[in-house]
Amino acid sequence: MTMPSDRLSGAVLFIFGLAMYFAIIPTFVEQAEGGNIAPNTLPNILSWMIAIGGAFLVLKPTPHQTQDLRYFARALMHGAILCAGIYAMTWFGFLYVAPVLALVIMVVIGERRMHWLALGAIGMPALIWIFITQILDRALP
């Protein structure tokens, strides 16, 4: 099942544009003397463009339909796995985390065949290690 999306995305963009203009830009853009354009000029103009565009979409949405919520949930789950994997890399490094991350992703996708699991979880990280550290002489993360 798909769902109409423009009102939702338009509302989010409208709020985002206003938040940028009224809260974020005044706080996080340092002002400077001189110059032809103030540092906040372009961000302010763009924030207004986004807010007005968002409001327009709320008032006059296109027939665009977005995916079912369960697809978003699955994408979120895969995104969370990626985040966890990259966080783990900051502690243990690519060499130890990559095989586990690849294995988890493949199992979640539904792969159960041992030879493909071995290729993805051991073969590919090994190939990347050889290519990066031995051939290109670079460090892995």
Binding site: L82, A98, L101, A102, I105, M106, I109, G110, E111, R113, W116, L119, G120, A121, M124, P125, I128
Partner: peptide, 11 residues
């Protein structure tokens, strides 16, 4: 299989 392709692409 996409399982191998995508996990490798992510790495």
């Amino acid at each position: 299989p996409i399982s191998v392709i995508f996990s490798s692409a992510i790495l």
